[in-house]
Design a protein around this nucleic acid. Structure first.
Lengths: 346, 346
DNA sequence: ATGAAAGCGCTAACAG
DNA sequence: CTGTTAGCGCTTTCAT
């Protein structure tokens, strides 16, 4: 089926040294003469020797497999693709390998798949927007270090955090709408299990409160993650709430769904309804009207997480940090003064 | 740092049997009484025993780590995210784990990272849109089985193929444009290393030839993978070729870049220029005008690849197949009869 | 039906 | 500086 593997013993025999000396040469450890190292490295090269990560992992009793897991709710959302992109470069450069776990937005799947990953003796774990309970996270952290949480605050001696100030981001969006003159502002939320969604809801409530504006319970609507779900749920919501002149939307994907609903209902955006969303993924600038949105530094979040992970792996004494990234409102076409003249979209 | 691992010996001791018997129980192998199996499984459960995939891999001499690699040019493109999505479900259900490799569209990186992955003794490999030379692919296939190639034809006893008839897809797009009445049709290509791009170019040339239409060399333009790259390269191209009334574009991302260039140049789409692209990713239906595009069954491609992989892993005697999926033109707003009246976009 | 022995390929701990 | 001795946790023989 496949050629016999070249093992460390083969190299040792060929170079006429002990297996151990080869190990020292390969791993650049002290206690070996330069000449010997050179010679061994050359023979290893000639034989096409590749150290087995599997055997290394075993011998190390699970210390260093040079692998770690990355967990995302769904790879199908450009947001997480961008985070992964931020993780990738460093990982590739340092010759680590990444197990990708897609949890389908389901906390139970997340927990199960992570536990299963543990049997592979990963060195660490990056969990993006974890939907699990604190207790489960604690259990996972007790089994592994480091665990880097992106977009989810969790305090644990093994856990690092790269956080977005979600509430502040949403507040800036609401303030923008208020400055435009809006008074009746609704909010489209994400999945109930999403922490970001809850944080953004808090930001919305706080900003509305600070502006002295009322909030009706019916003004808030949870929708599924797909564009179609937002479209489907959004249509009756829009019809039921003609009093609203602006909406803060959980993310761009949902905003795009609402845009479609608005178009079909003849609701002009931003003429009759302003829309401010979050994430600033590619489509935010491509849809018509382009979306005013709170930019989340997705790539940077991934990159910083990967840096922390690799640093902690390189020097096990390093303590995990908490990094806070700041979102920033990007004003585009989907927000304007309320009741401005403007024909319905189609 | 972490609790002592529970090993097979711990379970054996607790259950009062040999390590071997535990192994039989865990792996559901014959040669063990039902009662004993039950008892062992229970104690294993109580102890929280999780078999080490690493040790299993080593003991198996690289046969079954329940791990395989998935290689994509760039996770940042929704196309590949969709493929991954198709791979994910089955993988998760069968409790396999996936190493994700992003090659940055670079053949050398692709080769290097795959070789590096081999040290982890993966069971198989799915390579999406490989940019490597046949010779390198052959080398990789000689080291591993199965290797499933998505969107890249390659014949080898270890290699399965899930293919798209790219040329046919492009031909259907060109035929559509010709039927609209276009005579001078250009093409925006992908990266020169992309096989799809080359196949689509062939389809373009063939369809133009069959329609008896001329093709100028200057009508074809290669652009980078990002939207901005297409926008930047597209602008001077559009200005240099006012004779063109329609464009076949390599993919939706690039078409979106061109759309922006057209908007800035005051070129109405489809009024003065029709655009037909490929892939049918989300943004294709969201941009204005929405894109006529050749739908590629991305999710299905990933899913079929994963099915073949897992089938071959389950039954090692199974021979790899070649599966061909058919693209399908989706007509939207970006194509129309040439020279139809219609004001420039802005 | 169960157990004992050997070894997968490597590194850590100790010798020399 | 280099070699020897033990495993890491598991599965495969081969015994019993």
């Amino acid at each position: 089926m496949k050629d016999k593997r070249v093992t460390i013993d083969d190299v040792a025999a060929a170079a006429g040294v002990s297996r151990q000396t080869v190990s020292r040469a390969i791993n650049d450890l002290p206690g070996i003469s330069i000449a010997t190292r050179e010679r061994i490295l050359t023979t290893a090269q000639q034989l096409g020797y590749r150290p087995s990560g599997i055997a290394r992992g075993l011998a190390n009793a699970g210390q260093r497999t040079r692998t770690f897991g990355v967990v995302v709710p769904t790879i199908d959302n450009e947001f997480y693709a961008a985070v992964l992109h931020g993780i990738k470069d460093l990982t590739s450069a340092r010759d680590y390998h990444v197990f990708l776990v897609d949890t389908n937005e389901d906390p139970a799947t997340e927990y199960r798949r992570i536990q299963s990953l543990f049997s592979l003796w990963i060195d660490g774990l990056i969990i993006c927007s974890s939907r699990m309970e604190d207790q489960q996270l604690a259990e996972i952290c007790s089994q592994l270090r480091p665990v880097i949480l992106l977009n989810r605050e969790f305090i644990h001696p093994h856990a690092g955090n790269v956080l977005i100030d979600d509430a502040e981001g949403t507040e800036s969006a609401v303030r923008h709408l208020v400055e435009c003159g809006h008074k009746r502002i609704g909010m489209i939320l994400g999945m109930p299990v999403s922490r970001s969604s809850e944080n953004r809801r808090q930001g919305y409530l706080r900003a509305m409160h600070q502006a002295g504006l009322p909030v009706e319970p019916g003004w808030m609507l949870h929708t599924g993650a797909q564009l179609d779900a937002a479209y489907t749920a959004g249509k009756p919501y829009l019809q039921a709430h003609p009093e609203l002149t602006a909406l803060v939307v959980y993310n761009d994907v949902r905003a795009a769904g609402l845009l479609r609903a608005c178009a079909e209902l003849g609701i002009a955006v931003p003429g009759r309804l302003s829309l401010a969303s979050h994430d600033n993924i590619t489509l935010a600038s491509l849809v018509t009207p382009s979306l005013t949105t709170v930019d989340i530094p997705k790539y940077e979040m991934g990159r910083r997480g990967a840096v922390m992970m690799l640093d902690m792996l390189t020097d096990r004494r390093l303590q995990p940090e908490t990094i806070r990234l700041t979102p920033r409102l990007v004003e585009r076409e989907s927000t304007a003064t309320p009741n401005a003249k403007g024909a319905p979209i189609q």
